[in-house]
Design a protein around this nucleic acid. Structure first.
Length: 133
RNA sequence: CCAGAUUGUUGACUAGUCGCUUGUACGAUAGUAUAAGAGGAAAGUCCGGGCAGCAUAGGGAAAGGUAGUUGCUAACGGCAACCAAGGGUAACCUUAGGGAAAGUGCCACAGAGACUAUACCGCCUAAUUUAUUAGGUAAGGGUGAAAAGAGCAGAAGUAAGAAGCUGUAUUUCUUUCUGGUGACAGAUUGAAAUGGUAAACCCUACCUGCUGCAAGGAGAUGAAUUUACCAUUUAUGGUUAGUCCCCGCUAUAUUCAUCAUUAUCCGCUCGAUCUAAAUGGUAACAUUUAGACUAGAUAGAUGACUAGAUAAAACAGAACCCGGCUUAUGGAUAAUCUGGAUAA
């Protein structure tokens, strides 16, 4: 689970994101995102409607797995993005962890929410050099 | 040992890595430490109550609900014990269990005819055209779940028949008695009635004010109207609004715009609470004593991954809180009881 400051609040905010944000589509989910100039940290919302699955247990499970994957990779989000993950398929509750993680990471890289891997490596090298220095 | 009946319990654990929510302590802050963190149904939202607002929640009408008795309870359409009817060899189970003699409606198909009802066949009498007409008739046939009959049976009677009569069953009212708080059970006197349906209208008795935590309270900034409006009078009348309707009651606040505001804080968890023991009661339950504090989120915490024989398990996620009901549920397991078989 991510901290409360990184969660997404309010219908108004989501409406704003839906009308003005950019979208990237994967097989079973879409990512909508926009840079929020008022904030300093990024925010994430996972939207799982009742059409996806009737049971609240399954919907909670999808939400928690996606939050967890994003949390493990949160160092790669540099700018104050507002992100919404909109889910279409109940298969995400059963999918293997590595596959699910690769889907999320690839779609985030497509959207340029994550920095490019090459840039990331160079940054890391820079940091290491600084530490060594 | 086999087949059943009833009432329960549990419904996941350990280790590691990375996290979330709330409380407490320390700290200027960042944060650190520590404690706690979904269910038996949290579900369906079907009943009942608390709590909140509307008058203090009042009267009438309408509408709705409940239906054996006694008790339990904050209350109930719930629970317990009992009564009645039905099912089972039994343990035990099931029951929308008041009234059809207040009135109305309905009873398909078949059949001549099914409650202001009838004569198809047959039977009897008369007439003549000897096979038809007219009249009588419900003993018989046919149809149907039920037939001129409204419980059942019987004899006498007649042209053929009926009304009527006799016996008996049940029910209602009634007389008296016994047992029980009572439903009721067992006897008994007299009179009357007799198809089903009240999960058809209806009648009887009892109960129910409406809206639900998105209740309700506290917003910020700016603007406008003002003691709701009209008339007379300064307290009345009318209008409007609030509680479905009528009566009654109430009327310093109301409206608009903006705020990525459908936000934020309170309500919010100590309560008809939980655990244990004792006492009373057949039981539901009650009382007393001792101890405990046990989720409070808000796009919504209680998790993700790895390892453990890997196949890790059912139904399933608190949203103001309680008491029930109903529905979903893989596996494991306890107690009591019934019937049968075998052995001693």
């Amino acid at each position: 689970m991510i901290t409360r400051s990184n969660r997404f609040h309010g219908h108004g905010s989501l409406r704003y994101l839906y009308t003005r944000g950019k979208t990237v589509r994967a097989n079973q989910l879409t990512v909508r995102y926009i840079i929020n100039s008022r904030r300093e940290t990024w925010r994430l919302a996972v939207v799982v409607s009742k059409k996806v699955h009737k049971s609240a247990i399954v919907r909670n499970r999808i939400r928690r797995r996606l939050y967890e994957i994003v949390r493990n990779n949160q160092n790669r989000i540099s700018k104050p993005y507002d992100i919404a993950l909109i889910i279409f398929s109940p298969l995400l509750a059963e999918l293997e962890q590595q596959k699910l993680e690769s889907i999320i990471i690839s779609s985030f890289e497509k959207a340029e929410i994550f920095d490019n891997p090459k840039d990331k490596k160079t940054e890391n090298y820079v940091k290491i050099e600084e530490k060594e220095a």
